[in-house]
Design a protein around this nucleic acid. Structure first.
Length: 370
DNA sequence: GAGCCGTGGAA
DNA sequence: TTTCCAAGGCT
């Protein structure tokens, strides 16, 4: 009898077997990652938390060096809780989604001050912390504390919607996906714990990252291929279904790269919103439908600046919800020229250590011909 | 619920 | 070149 026929006659057995097949696959093919414990060992909650925050909407490759830098400088949550937000933002610069860095620091402070430096070991307790939403709470609870819960990230959404050929589109399908994902947890043993829930979750993530990929999934290598509804239909790549998204309107603005010898004029952005708390060079507003030259009216007022030099070309950058074009104006002012209110001079030699988002690094490089 | 919030790599 | 998207959370 073929496995296909078996699946038809005994679908219940086939599905009941999935958690075990998934874990067997994981034991053979799991990825070795810096924040992961060795097989059978309990993971360090601090490392799990730090990695989960960094991995939100960010690739494993991009996170690697940042994770090592943070762990080396702040080995535990107590050390991180005692660090300054500015130091954390500087260390985070370049990784994107900067509210994560602010919430990371805020979370460490709460754990240090309100939880004696020990992470809560329940999903609800974790969920209450800054920067920890439904996914991250479930992931930490399962991976670090072996709570029997299945986090649902982009990988698991993809695997599950293919496995069950779920037609409903995201984000409406999330509750259904969560429900179906939980069927891939192994049976509970000893109540809430010792179910290998963390391994089940990481198995699904690894499967999504290495086999059940967004494009051209390697179904032949998948431990669940013989009862995957998407694979049986042949349209597995079309899952998950999602509503089309709209691209933003182009915005334009100006950046002012002002040097005083070997120093650069900078300021800090407001704490919240786009690039919140990060460092920038002075600039105009970024507006849709604005002509390049109009932004010059918003140049900082500096004694000694008789005229601005407009660099040829534009700096382009694409944010999640809009593309941006910046024109760059430069000026060099005499020694001891005062920085305008709210601005400061920093040595060009130490720019790498500043909390510049990438768009600012581009603008500065353009202005300084780096 | 839908919009906001970065960056870099792959196709 | 353009598009997609990668271990989401906040408002």
């Amino acid at each position: 009898m073929s496995s296909r026929a078996a699946a038809k006659t005994k679908p219940t057995d086939q599905q009941a077997d999935r958690p075990a097949r998934l874990l067997a696959w994981y034991d053979r093919h799991r990825r070795r990652l810096p924040w992961r414990a060795e097989a059978g060992e309990r993971a360090d909650p601090y490392r799990v938390w730090l990695s989960e925050i960094m991995l939100q909407q960010t690739t494993v490759r991009a996170v690697g060096p940042y994770f090592e830098k943070f762990l080396s400088r702040w080995p535990d949550v107590t050390a991180l809780g005692r660090a300054s937000l500015d130091d954390v933002l500087r260390m985070w610069a370049g990784l994107g989604y900067y509210s994560r860095a602010r919430n990371l620091h805020a979370c460490a402070v709460v754990v240090l001050n309100n939880h004696d430096g020990v992470f809560p070991d329940t999903e609800d307790g974790l969920r209450a912390l800054p920067g920890i939403g439904p996914y991250t709470a479930a992931a930490i609870a399962a991976i670090a504390f072996d709570r029997r819960t299945m986090p649902v990230d982009g990988n698991i959404e993809r695997v599950v919607t293919r496995l069950y050929a779920i037609e409903a589109a995201l984000p409406q399908a999330k509750p259904l996906i969560k429900e179906m994902a939980a069927t891939l947890l192994g049976p509970s043993r000893a109540g809430d714990k010792n179910s290998r829930a963390g391994d089940s979750a990481q198995a699904l993530m690894d499967l999504g990252a290495t086999i059940c990929t967004p494009k051209k999934p390697a179904c032949a290598l998948c431990p669940l291929n013989d009862d995957c509804a998407g694979h049986a239909r042949g349209d597995q790549e079309t899952f998950p279904r999602k509503a089309p998204k709209k691209s933003g309107t182009l915005r334009r603005g100006a950046a002012f790269v002002v040097t005083r010898g070997a120093e650069l004029l900078v300021r800090s952005r407001p704490d919240k919103g786009l690039l919140g708390g990060m460092t920038e060079v002075p600039g105009s507003q970024w507006l849709a439908g604005q002509a390049d030259a109009a932004a010059l009216a918003e140049a900082p007022e500096l004694k000694g600046v008789t005229r601005w030099h407009r660099k040829s070309g534009v700096v382009t950058h694409v944010f999640t919800h809009f593309p941006l074009e910046l024109v760059v104006y430069t000026a060099n002012v005499p020694p001891r020229t005062r920085a305008p209110d709210g601005m400061r001079w920093v040595p060009v030699a130490t720019l790498d250590g500043e909390a510049f988002p990438n768009v600012m690094r581009k603008a500065i490089a353009h202005g300084l011909d780096l």
